[in-house]
């Protein structure tokens, strides 16, 4: 029994109840998708935390570069006209 390959890592996303998004719960090791789902159920929904599970091989996730954070996200900060509070509405007008 010499060095062996480790089971691949999977990222787990759980929908906590119907009507909500799947949310990242954590990761786990599994040899295949079927066992990844089963392991996710046993590891992340032991206390009824979920009604639906997604599993994704961690290696298949593409993430943005932390170094790009400024150029990716800062420009949005100045676009205040995207928010409703940017606009002035007379006080006597309601339901808007």
């Amino acid at each position: 029994m010499t060095t062996r390959k480790e089971w691949p890592l999977w990222e787990v996303f759980i929908r906590s109840r119907d009507g909500l998004h799947h949310k990242h719960a954590g990761s786990l090791h599994a040899p295949d998708a079927e066992l990844a789902i089963q392991n996710a159920r046993d590891l992340y929904t032991r206390r009824s935390e979920g009604v639906s599970i997604w599993v994704v091989p961690s290696a298949r996730i593409t993430a943005s570069e932390p170094a790009d954070k400024d150029s990716l996200f800062d420009p949005a900060a100045s676009k205040v006209y995207r928010h409703p509070t940017f606009y002035t509405i007379p006080e006597e007008v309601t339901n808007i």
Binding site: R4, K5, P31
Partner: peptide
Amino acid sequence: HEDGAWVREAALAHA
């Protein structure tokens, strides 16, 4: 860990 090695290996081989 050692006794489980063949189990983990079998699952990988099957996958």
